[in-house]
Write a protein that binds this DNA or RNA. Structure first.
Length: 285
DNA sequence: ATGGTTGAGCGTCAA
């Protein structure tokens, strides 16, 4: 009987032969707690690159043996005590871009930028964890909401200044559901942080600096699509009050290489699941 | 309008 990891390795050979690069993003909500689910992710989804958010592990406590045991020789992480934290696990070599900005000068571990060495050349990859923004959708009354908007504004300016960038993929928990059908009820969520017009406008401006939505590329805008369901719902599947907070964007030159997307709803039922599920896109590069 | 749950790490904050 093959172990899940052996199956993952066999599948990896296939994916590399067909030159399909599968990139997954997942807000894991504690890397250390969900190590068994990382194995589940690898055996069932088999990504070539895994971008994580909310790892909630300081760098000195990051389990450095874990990526290798899961079959990912190459990795980068940036974490802090208690909150936030991002990590990238990769089967392909990567280099961290140490020149990436410290957003809002908070040093709060919400972004990793790497260059991935693919068979067809380098690919720029960004893993973002955008501030959630608190409960009150008013930047004057709520500093967390102000931080969220400022963060997105800085990121927008950063990519706008690099006009015409290519071979770039941006993923992460962007904590905004931009389209009407990215939430269970557009009308009921218009004043709820994650779907307010000011956030949606900000996110759209960021995307317009040079990205297309690689998941919606495959799914019509009038089709409901979620990647997050609150822990505060007894039966998430029955109520299905979800939001699409997790995104994969690509620079337009990569459009011809987009092969498939998948939002892994079933992961919401994994034992001790995260409230977010993995989202993946296949690129033929 | 409110409350509902989870994680980090031990107070409560953040989501």
């Amino acid at each position: 009987m093959d172990s899940p990891l052996a199956l993952g390795r066999a599948a990896r050979q296939c994916s590399l032969m067909s030159r399909t690069l599968r990139i997954a993003t997942w807000n894991i909500n504690s890397f250390r707690l969900r190590m068994p689910l990382m194995e589940e992710l690898v055996s069932t989804i088999d990504p070539d690159i895994i971008c994580l958010q909310e790892t909630k592990v300081p760098d000195e406590l990051f389990p450095r043996e874990a990526p290798g045991l899961l079959g990912y020789e190459h990795y980068a992480f940036k974490g802090m005590k208690g909150y936030n934290g991002v990590a990238i696990l990769s089967r392909l070599p990567l280099t961290v871009d140490a020149t990436a900005p410290d957003w809002c000068e908070k040093g709060d571990c919400r972004h990793l930028a790497v260059s991935v060495q693919t068979p067809s050349g380098p690919l720029e990859l960004h893993d973002f964890y955008v501030p959630a923004g608190g409960d009150i959708p008013d930047p004057v009354e709520n500093p967390k909401f102000a931080h969220k908007l400022a963060f997105i504004r800085e990121a927008t300016a950063y990519f706008a200044a690099r006009k015409g960038f290519k071979r770039t993929v941006l993923v992460g928990d962007l904590n905004i559901a931009p389209l009407e059908h990215d939430v269970w009820s557009h009308k009921q969520l218009l004043k709820i942080v994650s779907h307010t017009p000011v956030e949606v406008d900000a996110l759209n401006a960021w995307q317009k600096t040079g990205f297309i939505d690689a998941v919606r590329h495959f799914v019509p805008a009038d089709e409901k699509l979620y990647s997050w369901w609150s822990y505060r719902n007894k039966d998430w599947r029955a109520s299905d009050r979800g939001r699409r907070l997790d995104h994969i964007w690509a620079s337009p030159d990569l459009t011809p290489s987009l092969k498939a997307q998948r939002i892994h709803r079933d992961a919401r039922d994994w034992p001790q699941s995260s409230d977010h599920v993995p989202v993946a896109v296949d690129f033929a590069i």
